[in-house]
Structure formats: structure tokens, C-alpha cells
Design a protein around this nucleic acid. Structure first.
Lengths: 191, 191, 191, 191
DNA sequence: GATGAATGAGGGTTCATTCAT
DNA sequence: AATGAATGAACCCTCATTCAT
């Protein structure tokens, strides 16, 4: 057996778990397989995560926070609202394409409350970003006047749909450009 | 227990199954509970459906076809493309609100191919409806010129996002009107 | 597989469980083995008892109540206090010899509270019987005056010791007569 | 962690083990916890004891021998047989009260042979002490004539019962004086 | 000597499915 | 057609033990 640093083990477990949960859902995923794919023993798994639930939550948290901070970073550096929206959408879709993970609906079979706070925090954050962008767009006059929170809600909902489509379409030929244009047409004053 | 016709039994099984699969996901749902809620014995269940998988597939098929035909009916009777889009969206969201079922991501824990053909057929059909509406809109000059299949894809993807949001937001305060307006802004020539 | 009545199954499970818990203690006993010895599948076990803990408690309760009622019956029919004490002791030891079960210390590894109420009820009952006998003995003048509850406590404690000895001595050559005489010498006025 | 002598380590392991085995029984006790409470690593444990079984046996041996030699010392110094019996009982009960350990039934879940020789030696020794005392009592005419080995067996059995009672009664209000008197009444010529 | 991450067999429990009635 | 007791594989998790450091 190869010794690895604790950090390596934890990270390879998270990778294997992401794959398993994404492919098979929470109940369908299986700790033995995750352990196997992470090149660790079953017992080893439990040195790092005290239960299947804890593993899944930790994973959700990590991934969503990673995406959140990635989004924040890029959105911050962009001063053109239209461009910011585009980047916001494409970062999300790229991340999805790269990882092909379904985090949004994860753990539903443990009841609707599973990871609710983590997800809620993520969605709230996403909405905050979008609100900020829209407000800036409205202020500078490039976006139409609108009910900002309501509009942000719609935009994030649409994004969720795009993400799902990317995942469900096996051909993956999902047109990111087109999505952005469509969304922008709903926001921009002059199209 | 009252004798019921085979049709009644089957239908009450499907109802119970829908509830179970929606609440707990495929793996999380439990045949014994489904039987109990359908007021039938465990063995009885297997007289009507040869396995859990068959039950779930049959359910998906039935529900998606019901929604599909409902959609078709209403869309057919509507000659105003903008109104048709609105109806298309609101039928879907109403159906979701009423049943609170997650059919889109169902059976993922049996692998990505689970029910793939049923879902694919459904999505294709949905897209067809949308394409038809858009084409009509473009023909009559109320909608912008566009790549029709591509746009239809985007619109249906957005719809999926709305559906998911309806399901995930516990308060359910999802603004159907706003969604329609937003989508229409992406389609209509004059807004 | 032979079909048996539910009553038979339950009873053969209890027999197998008694053997297992007596020989190996609570933690050491193993549901698979119990199932095997009861000629039932693992799943079958759980049709009758919802958990290992429930099985053990049910067993304790059943056995202690059986012994309790056996004791009560015989003690009631005996009007000579000295004879009653003798019968009380020998019933307990016979029952122990016959079943070779250790119920007294069972479940300790689940914490000291495991089955505490069941055991407590049993011990209280036993003490009550002894108190009654002693009181009668004192009233009729055959027993020495004494602090009745205190003496009853001592007698039951002694009994526990006899029971343990019967179990721990593999040769089993434990002299019941001698025990009775010894105990009686502590109680009788004229020896 | 402070360096300690091997002797210190061993002794602190034995202390932790005694606590663990007493509280949770053999199977219920946990090597990791024992190590933790002994302020030593899991691996360290195995430097001193080659297995859980060895640890438990070593513990039993040590404790029983300690009690045995304690008993021997005190019994030797006492020339009055009645007093010797009293001391014999109270030493045992005091030791039990102090340590609250259950050594008598320990290891049962490894089969009835676990530690059989250690226990047997201890019981034999105890019986020898009692026999010696009784013989002396009979010789000097203070005790009744009796079958000495048989009587010794009964007395030690009773002691076991007292020990168990001390352990099982949570209030611990077990009357040592009363026990002694009761036992003596069975032995003394004039009461 | 000492550590603690890692192992893997085995424990309690669940549940889709079967089949005697 | 209908029942529900029974099955047994597979699940999550624990823990005595080992071994590279």
C-alpha cells in the first residue's frame, strides 16, 4: 500500500465521492466503491469523514464554495455588466462541464432538508452576485429598469436549467453563447 | 380490504410510487412503503410491475406523456405565439407545483442511462412544441429572426431551471409571470 | 425452507438468542449466528424483533417474568416458611441449571442502564417474595426477629451468588441442599 | 506527551483497561479508547500487550492476584476465626466498591473458557482461605462441626452474590455488617 | 520505543424480490 | 388474483491489529 499524505487521501476521497454521488445519487452511491476508487480501505474512509452523510455534505460544501469564490473573483474584476453576466453564466457552465457533477439535487433522498443550509447559502450568494451586476447595469443605464431581486431570481433559475441541460444532454452540445445572448436580451436596453 | 379493479390497483400504485420517488429518489424509495400507501400487499405490487425499475420507468413514462399531451392540447388551441409560449411555461410550472415531483433527475442512481429514452422522447417532444411555436412567431413577424432549433433548446433549458426552482424553493414563491415576460423579451420583436 | 407458524419462529429465535447471549454476552453475540441457529434468515429475524437490543430486552423480560411467575406460584402454595425459602432457592437454581443463562449481567456493555427497569422489576419482585416469606416466618415464631427488608436483601444477594456459582463451576456440582441449610440457619430460631 | 517508564505505561494501560472492561464488558471495550485514556498511542498498547485478549487476561490476573494477596495478608494476621470471616468479606466488598469492576463474569463473550484457569486459581485460593478459617473455627470450638470444603464453597458463593449486588445496586446501599452477621450465624456455634 | 494512518473482516440492519398458501 | 413471511445480498460502519515512519 502506498503511503500518501493525509491531504492527498482526503482529496482523492473527495474526487471519488464526487464521481459516485454525481453518477448514482446519494443513496445509490456506495462507500466501498468510493473507497476503492480513492485507493483507500473502507476503514480509511472513515478516518477522514465520519459518515456517508458527512462526506456528502463536506463535498457539497467544498464544491459549492469553490464555485462561489471562483464566481466572485471573476465577477469582481469585471466592470461591464453585460460582460459580467456572460462570465457568470459561462463560469458556471464550464465548471459543470468540467466536473459533470449534480450538486443541486443531491441528497434529496435523505429528505428535502439534506444540506439545505449549504445549498441555500450558495443560492443566496449566487443571487447576490447577479443582483449586484443587474443593479450596476441599471445604474449605468445599459440595463432596463426592473425589479432587481425578482429579475435576479429568474436569471439564476435559468442558469440552473442550463446547468441541468449540460448534464442531461449526453452530446453536451449546449450553446453557451446563445444562452448568454438570450439572457442579455432580457436585460439590455438596446439589443 | 375492498376489491378493486386491476385498473384501480395499478393507478393507486402509480400514485403511491410517484409520491415515494419524488420524496426520496429512486434508491431512497421503498417498495414496501409504496405497497402500503397503495393499499396493496408487497406481492400484489409485483403482479402489476415486475420490478422497482419497471415501476419507475412506467411511472415516468405515464407522467411525462400526460404532461406532454396536456401541453400539446393547449398549445394546439392557441394561435397567438406569445400567448402559446406563456401557456407552455405555465402549464409546466403548474403541473410541477401540483405534483411536486422530480421526474427530470429521477433514476440517476441507476446510471445515466436509466429511462434515457423515455426522457429523451419527452424532451424532444417539448422541443418540438417550442420550435413549432417559435417558427410560427417568426413567420407571422412577431418574433425575431433566429436559429429556431437552437432557440427552442435554450427556452426548454430555461424551463427546466424554472421547474427546478419551483421544487427547490420551499416557499414556492416563484414568479411565473416574470419568467414568461423574461423569456418573451428574448423572442419578441417589439417589447 | 420449512414454513412454520409465526409463533414457532419467534420461539425458536428466542431460544437461539438465549443460547447466544448466555454464551457470548450481548456484544459477543451475533445476529447472523442467532438466525442460523433459529433456522431462519437474517432478514427473518428482523420481522420478529426490530433490533438486537429489542431482541435481548424481550428475551430478558420473557425469561425473568417466567421465572418470576414460576416462583410466585410455588411460593404461594407453601405455608411453611422454611420450606418456602428452600423452594425459592431451589427453583431459582434449577431454572439456572436448566437454562445455563446469564441474565443478571446481560447487556452491561450497552451501558449500565440496559434493561435496567426490567431487571429492577425482577429483583424487586424477588425481594418482595422473600420479604413475605420472612415476615410470615417471624409472625409464626419460627424465624428470628430481624429487619425484614434488610434480611431479604441479603438473602436475594446470596441467591445471586449461588446462581453465579452454578453457572461458573463447569462441573456444576453445586450443593443446593447445603445452601438452603446455610441460609435457613441464618433465619430459623431453633437450628 | 511526557516520556514515562515502561512500568508507568503498563500500569496506566491496566488502569484504563480495567475501567473499560468493567464499564463495557470484554467485547464492548475498545482498544483505541483504552489507549487514549492511558495516554498512549494505539501502537504503543501493542508493545505492552500483544492482543486485547492478552490485555484482559493480564488484567484479570493482576487484579485477582492483588486481591488474593491482600486477602491472604489480612487473614494471616487474624487469629479469631469469626473476625477473620468478617474481614474476608469486607475486604472483598471494599475492593469491589472501590474499583466497581466486574471481573467475575469478564470475557464470557470469548467463550466460557476465557481466563478459566486464572479465575479457577483465584476461586480455589479464596476457597482455601475460607477453608482454613473454618477449620480453625471448628478446631477451636467456636464454629459448628461441618463439611468444611462444602461449607467454604457455599460461603464463597455467597460472597460472589454480595459482590454482584454491590455492583448492580446503583445506590450502593449494601449492608456489609448484615451480610457478615448472616454468614456467621451459619457458622458459629452460639449466636 | 513510539506513533497513528491504514487495513479488512465482520457486525447490525435494510430491502427488492420470491413463493407457499 | 392476492397475501405477507421469508430470503439473502448488500449496505453503512466499527475496531483489533499492523507497519512505515
Amino acid at each position: 500500500m502506498n503511503r500518501r499524505s493525509a491531504k492527498d487521501s482526503k482529496s482523492s476521497i473527495l474526487d471519488a465521492a464526487l464521481k459516485a454521488f454525481s453518477e448514482h445519487g446519494y443513496s445509490g452511491a456506495n462507500m466501498r466503491t468510493i473507497a476503492g476508487n480513492a485507493n483507500i480501505s473502507v476503514g480509511g474512509l472513515y478516518l477522514y469523514f465520519k459518515s456517508k452523510e458527512a462526506l456528502c455534505l463536506s463535498l457539497m460544501k467544498e464544491r459549492l464554495e469553490e464555485l462561489s469564490s471562483k464566481t466572485e473573483r471573476i465577477v469582481k474584476d469585471t466592470y461591464n455588466p453585460a460582460e459580467a453576466i456572460e462570465k457568470f453564466i459561462s463560469i458556471n457552465l464550464d465548471y459543470t462541464k468540467e466536473h459533470r457533477e449534480i450538486i443541486l439535487t443531491q441528497g434529496r433522498d435523505k429528505g428535502f432538508t439534506f444540506g439545505a443550509d449549504v445549498k441555500k447559502r450558495f443560492f443566496r450568494q449566487q443571487r447576490k452576485f447577479v443582483e449586484k451586476i443587474i443593479r450596476e447595469g441599471v445604474r449605468t443605464g445599459v440595463f432596463l429598469e426592473c425589479n432587481v431581486p425578482e429579475t435576479a431570481k429568474i436569471v439564476t433559475a435559468m442558469l440552473r436549467g442550463f446547468v441541468l441541460s449540460v448534464l442531461l444532454e449526453p452530446d453536451g452540445l449546449f450553446n453557451v453563447r446563445g444562452c448568454c445572448e438570450f439572457v442579455l436580451r432580457g436585460l439590455l436596453k438596446n439589443v
